[in-house]
Amino acid sequence: MSTRIGTVFGQELRQARRNLWVILATAVLGLFALALALFGAGQGSGLKVDVLTLTAVSLATLSVYLIPLIALLMSYDSISGEVERGSLALTFATPVRRWEVFVGKFLAQTVAVCVAILIAFGTVGCIIGFLAEVSQEGVYAWLRLMLSAGGLGAIFVGTGLMLSALTGRTARAAAAAVGVWLLLVVLYDVALLGAIMAAGEGIFSTHVFPWLVIANPADAFRLYNLAMIDAAPVAGIDGLSQTLPFPPVAALAALGLWLMATIAIGSARTKRIVP
């Protein structure tokens, strides 16, 4: 079992490297992080928090857009593309179990995303530490950001692969990936804001709304990072981070549930593919 997953894993990781996905993702994330760090350094002296904390807050908000996009782009074609090219028929004819193919692909692409995040955010973190005063709280915020960003990447790699297995066609998988990104990253927040405006103060805003926020992995990620930072300058939905009815770690549990769901559904669906 481990040999077969390892084989799929090695093959996928090699693909991600040769297709320059890792380098591209690292460059994009690194440049954005650097830009935010410089912006934070520019205004940091006027606030009571250090540059690292400030950048972690703004980077958490930006990562919600970028990391799902990178993860979905890397994964949406992975199964449907192989169905269309006919190479999956060859793989499925071997003794490899179907779920092993799904899990091997998932692990490899997750590693690719995580490596990009670690290199990009790690480098920028070091640059900030080199240029400005750094508090212990800032270092923790930065580490939490890197780890939870990896988790967010894993969820969206799992989602992309699941969509790829569900649709079985690259064009449809692309459409579904774009749709999911828009829905979870953009439209969900807009809808929630609309709902809370309409509902006003009451049961909805205190008891239902927080749960709806962490039901979305993108919001759960941002909420976790912001709620862990006391001095975070926040607004809008993120204002919730200071009045949560549950500990911030619950947001991590929500991320874990999402991850397990995508892998379970994706693996089950991969079993039913006719290559």
């Binding site: 040999t3 077969r4 084989t7 093959q11 693909q15 040769r18 071997t94 490899v96």
Partner: peptide
Amino acid sequence: QRNLSGREVLSYFSGLR
């Protein structure tokens, strides 16, 4: 996969088997 070598392709299937 076009960017893999012949040897890598065979190693992959050899690993799966």
